[in-house]
Write a protein that binds this DNA or RNA. Structure first.
Length: 275
DNA sequence: ATATTCCCCTGGAAGC
DNA sequence: TGCTTCCAGGGGAATA
């Protein structure tokens, strides 16, 4: 489900509701997520402490809690965070419940359980095994752009589609936005990364940034079940040019959108427009 | 270094 | 109404 724009949408929707709230209790109903939730560490880290800020790194939401505690939440494929009244009955797959002191609850819901929740001290953030290896942050203008993409791709033989989706190279870009950005930049997904000219790196970097930014403006892409912290769907799905559009006409050339597979993931592209 | 495949899971859609 | 098969927004690990 969630790629960078969706995670960022969730972050923005939760921010005004959560900052300043005190977490009075955490209830782990199902600890078996992508990695086992350490209930003890989570409870001792956050209970009776206030949420100070919510940041995002890659596809992780980072809750800054008092006393330098960080809670890193990854939504995986089907994860959802929602703010609900405390008397709302639990739904199937409501795995972790943060009880707040304003009678609301932040609930982590995740049918497929590919998501994760970790807690640690802020100091450990840069060396944490799940965060340390992360690549360029595409919406940080100091980190990402033509120069960074050009430099980062030199010597890399993997197809550019795989590069875009490799979180050790560039973070936040998943299957939807990798396809869409390549289409916008008119670059064929099989192109050897290291062979991209500087100019094409410039176009691609621009396409990545604009695609992600526009998706955030639209509140993300809701294909099936994505919703922000308040339950709102995103509206970028209507703007998708290639993702999920196998056999349909390209908006530019009227040629047919093709589906191929890269690293086990569907890739959608226009064979006529993308070279 | 990179490519492929499988795995962790549930559930929805399509095919028969 | 089933039942089976395929597919899914992520990502890590094992294997070639």
């Amino acid at each position: 489900m969630p790629e960078l724009p969706e995670v960022e949408t969730v972050r923005r929707s939760l921010l005004p509701h959560l900052v300043g709230q005190r977490i009075v209790n955490v209830h782990v109903r199902q600890p078996k997520l992508r990695w086992p939730v350490s209930t003890e560490a989570l409870k001792s880290g956050v209970e009776n402490r206030r949420i100070l800020d919510i940041r995002r790194r890659a596809k992780y939401l980072l809750l800054d809690v008092e006393d330098n505690v960080v809670v890193a939440i990854h939504l995986g494929m089907s994860g959802r965070l929602s703010l609900v009244q405390k008397d709302r009955t639990f739904a199937k797959h409501d795995h972790v419940i943060f009880h707040l002191d304003n009678q609301m609850q932040l609930r982590f819901h995740d049918p497929r359980r590919f998501g994760s929740i970790d807690s640690f001290f802020r100091q450990q953030e840069v060396v944490h095994p799940r965060l340390a290896h992360l690549g360029l942050e595409p919406l940080d203008p100091h980190a990402f752009g033509e120069d960074a993409l050009y430099t980062q791709t030199r010597g890399k033989k993997k197809p550019i589609k795989n590069f875009l989706m490799d979180a050790t190279e560039l973070v936040g870009v998943g299957n939807i936005y990798a396809c869409e950005a390549l289409y916008a930049a008119q670059i064929h997904p099989n192109t050897v990364s290291g062979r991209l000219s500087r100019a094409r790196c410039g176009r691609l970097a621009e396409a990545v940034v604009s695609t992600l930014s526009q998706a955030i403006e639209q509140g993300g892409t809701t294909l099936r079940d994505f919703a922000d912290g308040e339950g709102n769907s995103g509206y970028f799905a209507v703007r998708l040019q290639v993702y999920g559009r196998t056999g349909r006409a390209c908006g530019v050339c009227q040629g047919l959108i093709r589906r191929v597979v890269h690293a086990g993931r569907s890739t959608f592209y226009c064979p006529k427009c993308q070279h």
